[in-house]
């Protein structure tokens, strides 16, 4: 009972504290970093559904991120729709492409799946770069209007901080609910053993496609937020290395565990900001070197990540046991 209460207290403190950060003495810079951290938490939570829960290594996640960003950017520029509508449309568009990619790749597993998703994301970038009539190609889309609510346009850093916090909470709640349900269990079953899962009556097609669609739409939501926040998008922002970065987050944190992936984002994104300060200008892009090293070292020393899936599961089980114990005195 004790650690359960402690955990609750910590969560409550965090929930109360996080929104207060902008009121403290923190600068814009820190707020920006935190916003990036939350954004990457959203992305890694999304990737975690396919790679962690369902067990398929998705190297093309950034494709959906890009699709979301460009959906938001183009819709803002051409139609100037309200933010809520844009987020919804981006999510739907992401889901559509997730399904389009998911259905043909269903039969693939392991390496080949990874390669096909990789090829997909590269094709997305090529398309964005070359179809000038739609995306303005290498010029990028600039001057995307900031989201506005009730006539107030968001401009300060803390506005975006709260916006991404809200998005993150929504995503977190959705994933939490899905994980501990019939759908989440079906995903786990597919990851653990596809044949046994089928024999338990799980429709592989349906659940894999569902995982793909949800993951892609979360990625697209992240992209839409990014476009609205940064007000400028460019094809180079959605290159393969971004996928590797997100992969790195969930590998570091622990594939399949929700808090692990969030921890990964919390550790790596500020690290890369620190590197950005430390490293001289011309070496800026070489901070990816660190991500490479992290991937290699994690795979060698702790392939299950900092918070392995099994530990997250046994925590959850302990709680469930306690809950049942409270209700039923007969339970041993």
């Amino acid at each position: 009972m004790h650690d359960l209460q402690w955990k609750k207290i910590v969560i409550v403190i965090l929930v109360l504290l996080l929104p207060c950060i902008p009121f403290g003495s923190s600068t814009d810079y820190i707020l920006r970093i935190l916003t990036t951290v939350y954004l990457y938490m959203i992305l890694s939570l999304g990737l975690n559904i396919v790679s962690g829960f369902t067990g398929l290594l998705d190297l093309g996640y950034v494709g959906f991120y890009g699709i979301g960003a460009y959906t938001a950017g183009l819709l803002t520029i051409h139609f100037n729709l309200p933010f809520g509508v844009i987020i919804l449309l981006a999510a739907v568009n992401g889901a559509i492409w997730g399904i389009l990619l998911g259905v043909p790749t269903l039969r693939l597993t392991g390496d080949y799946f990874a390669i096909v998703t990789f090829g997909f994301s590269e094709l997305v970038v090529l398309f964005i770069r070359n179809e000038l009539w739609l995306t303005r190609g290498p010029m990028g889309i600039s001057g995307i209007a900031s989201p506005s609510f009730f006539g107030h346009s968001l401009s300060e850093s803390w506005h975006f901080y709260y916006l991404v916090l809200v998005l993150l909470s929504i995503v977190l709640v959705i994933i939490h609910r899905l994980e501990d349900s019939r759908i989440g269990r079906a995903w786990y079953a597919i990851r653990e053993d596809e044949i046994a899962a089928q024999c338990c009556g799980i429709n592989l097609v349906k659940y894999k496609v569902m995982a793909f669609a949800i993951s892609a739409s979360i990625g697209a939501v992240g992209g839409a937020f990014y476009a609205k926040w940064f007000t400028f998008i460019h094809p180079d922002m959605f290159k393969f290395w971004e996928s590797v970065l997100i992969l790195c987050l969930i590998v570091l944190g622990g594939m399949g565990s929700i808090y692990g992936t969030m921890l990964g984002a919390l550790l790596i994104i500020p690290l890369s900001e620190v590197l950005r300060i430390i490293l001289p200008q011309y070496l800026m892009n070489s901070r990816y070197l660190i991500y490479g090293i992290i991937l290699v070292i994690m795979m060698r020393l702790r392939p299950d990540g900092l918070i392995p899936f099994q530990i997250a599961q046994s925590q959850k089980n302990k709680h469930a046991q306690k809950r049942l114990f409270r209700h039923h005195e007969t339970y041993p």
Partner: peptide, 27 residues
Amino acid sequence: PIRKSPRLAALITAIGMSIFLQNLALI
């Protein structure tokens, strides 16, 4: 070192090495 681990681990290591070498050359 990871020859006996699952294939995905090896694949992720390979990606990591690829990034590492590329950025090493960049430096």
